[in-house]
Simulated assay, not measured.
Amino acid sequence: MSKPLIKPLLAATLLASLASSVFALEYRSTARNGVILYDAPQESSTKRFVLSANIPLEILAEQGNWLRVRDRDGTLAWLTKADVSSTRYVQVNRLAEVRKDAAANSALLFKVERNVVIELLQDTRTGWLKIKHRDGAIGYIRIEDVWGA
């Protein structure tokens, strides 16, 4: 490799690594029932809607004690940091199969209906998520079958 190409190549590599970290998605879930989402980061602003516990939200920005979030439908709103939990949940997009292991040919444990919220235990980084159903059953679901991971 000739010397004139080294600096541009290093710059391109650095920019690519920065871009991947800048665009990493962050999700959290509502901490309790009755979480209020607002139009602006202040309690005197218009209340948009109220969420149940464990609803996954994408974190877009932080401003003081407030978080700008997006829900599965793309709705943007604000809520207080105290209203989110570090325990992660995902929301099922469509009727989905939960398998015993992280493989399509693994035994089918059960199916989950659209909109069901399930606890996220682990992202295997293989396209499968280890999840826990509210009845205690643990298995693996395809990442494309859920929102919030």
Rank of each mutant, 00 (worst) to 15 (best):
77 A>Y: 13
29 S>C: 03
24 A>I: 05
123 D>E: 12
127 G>H: 01
106 S>L: 11
60 L>D: 07
36 I>W: 10
91 Q>C: 05
14 L>E: 05
125 R>W: 13
110 F>R: 14
68 R>Y: 06
90 V>K: 07
144 E>L: 10
56 P>C: 11
85 S>D: 10
149 A>W: 12
36 I>C: 03
96 A>V: 09
46 T>N: 11
60 L>T: 14
108 L>N: 14
49 F>Y: 01
83 D>R: 00
19 A>D: 08
24 A>V: 07
138 I>A: 12
55 I>V: 07
7 K>F: 11
54 N>E: 14
133 H>I: 01
87 T>D: 02
58 E>W: 06
12 A>I: 15
42 Q>F: 11
37 L>N: 12
121 L>N: 07
29 S>W: 15
19 A>I: 03
80 T>N: 14
41 P>A: 08
120 L>I: 08
68 R>G: 03
50 V>K: 06
109 L>H: 03
88 R>A: 09
76 L>F: 14
102 A>F: 08
123 D>Y: 06
71 D>V: 04
62 E>N: 09
123 D>H: 13
47 K>F: 01
72 R>W: 09
66 W>A: 07
77 A>Q: 05
136 G>C: 01
74 G>C: 07
87 T>E: 13
98 V>T: 05
119 E>Q: 15
125 R>A: 08
10 L>M: 04
45 S>F: 02
44 S>Q: 09
148 G>H: 00
128 W>M: 06
78 W>G: 09
122 Q>G: 03
47 K>Y: 04
62 E>H: 02
72 R>D: 11
12 A>W: 05
131 I>C: 02
61 A>W: 03
70 R>C: 00
74 G>M: 11
105 N>H: 09
88 R>S: 09
71 D>F: 04
85 S>L: 15
111 K>F: 06
24 A>P: 02
47 K>W: 15
23 F>K: 07
28 R>P: 08
64 G>E: 10
100 K>E: 15
60 L>Y: 13
106 S>G: 12
72 R>H: 07
63 Q>L: 10
119 E>R: 14
51 L>S: 02
84 V>R: 10
97 E>R: 14
136 G>M: 02
80 T>Q: 15
71 D>Q: 13
57 L>T: 03
6 I>A: 01
